[in-house]
Every structure is written in structure tokens, then in C-alpha cells.
Amino acid sequence: MNHSAAEVLAVMAARQLRGVTSLFAGVGIPLLAAALAQKTHAPDLTIVVEGGSIGPEVIPGRLPISTNEMRVAHRARMLPGITDIFLLAQRGFLDVGFVGGAQIDRYGNLNSSLLGPHERPKVRLPGSGGANDIISLCRRVMVVTMHERRRFVPQVDFVTSPGFLGGGDARRKAGLLFGRVSRVVTHLAILDFEEDSKAMRVAALHAGVTVADVRDNTGFELLIPEGIGTTEPPTERELTVLRSLDPDRRFL
């Protein structure tokens, strides 16, 4: 089956959820990936959404636009306040969080705040929302993003959501004891971070993608180990389930 870049992204993110029981997810591709995982290989997955919803079910064709609207409350099991839902993550109940951002650097730091100088930005972006909290508090965090050179920059203009900060043990030293960015899932590849330096590394390529493609779309030097594997392309089943969730292809 032919498929779009967004569909590859959703399928690859969903596959990362095997065995995961609780996920902090935003709307758009992350929520679609979560719903796909739930319907295929992660039936025990509880989706938690920052607007205050635990265990909602996605209604096909009525995908939510925000994390705090009725569409995310459909068949939910609990609707706690926003502060309290983040405190669940701070306590350690959330296995995985999905985040994104306008910029990401080699240490997995994300920027969704501004471009240019902090005091007088050239472009003022919407801001953290819960991204900073998810990356600081969930046990494992996966960045889910399109792979573009303007996004993958040597240094983010502003650290909205800390990955490994300056690398090495900088994250731990800043007081961030628990969470870590474990994966970056893009439409070209799966990336992770080298154990000591915490620099970004290619872990697997998607079918039909070359190392040169990934390099061309990354604005910094990636670690590229020998013998990188290739992921299985999206299956017909995965695509069928995914498209049934978003029949109007608003996000796919």
C-alpha cells in the first residue's frame, strides 16, 4: 500500500508502544499512533492527555484538536484537573510520553518557544504547553517529528523541553532525576542517543531511506554505527486501522 510520510510516522511511533501500559500523548499524530497501538499490539495501553483525560477512546473521524475538549473525554475513565494529571507523571505513573517541537538538537533538546534572541524574538512560537513537563517527568520520552533540516539544528534557540542539555550527565546535574529521551521517531528513521555522550545516533532506517537521506535532512553530525537495520514498512493492517481513525485525513 502507498503511504504518506505522516502515516509512516504514526505507524513507527505506534510500534514503539509494545508493552507500554501508560502513555502521555498530545493530539494529532501522537494520539493517532497511540490509538493505533491500542487497536493492534498494545491493548492494555492507557492514554493520558494533559487537558485532563485518563483512558479516552478516539472516535473515528472526530479527532480532537486540543488536549482539553470533549472529543478527548469520550468514554474516558477519569477527568482530573490539569495540575493533578501532571502530578501523576511527577509521581512516576507514566511509562512513556510523546513530544514534539519546532527545533531539536543533537542532545534531544526541544524548542517550541521562540526563534532568535530570548528578549526580542524574531518568531514567537506558541510555547511549551505540557511538553516541558512530559519530557521532565515521564519515565521515557519519545520525540515524534517529521525529519527536516530546519528542525534538526545544531543548537536550539531556546531550551523549552530539556533532552540531555549539554550531553553527558548534564541532565542529571540539572536535577532531572527520572525521565530521559529514549527515542526520536521520524518519518525517515528511528534515532536514539549514545550511552556516554548522549549524542543522537541513527538506530534504524525506514524502508527505502538511505543514510545520505537522513544526513541531508539533519543540520548536525549524527552518530552512524555500522550495520544499521531497516524497519518493516507499514503493513496493510496498520494502514487500514490508521485510516479508519482519520478517514478525512486531517492529520495523515
Binding site: 511527577q90 530570548h118 516541558n132 521532565s136 517527568l137 531550551v159 530539556p162 540539572a174 527520572f178
Partner: peptide, 13 residues
């Protein structure tokens, strides 16, 4: 006290 925002540029903002 909280464990969030540490290490980020939001601290100074």
C-alpha cells in the same frame, strides 16, 4: 517545589 522545568530556559524566562 517541583521536578519540572529544571535545566530549561523556562527557568530564567
Amino acid at each position: 517545589p517541583t521536578l519540572t522545568m529544571l535545566g530549561s530556559d523556562l527557568m530564567a524566562a
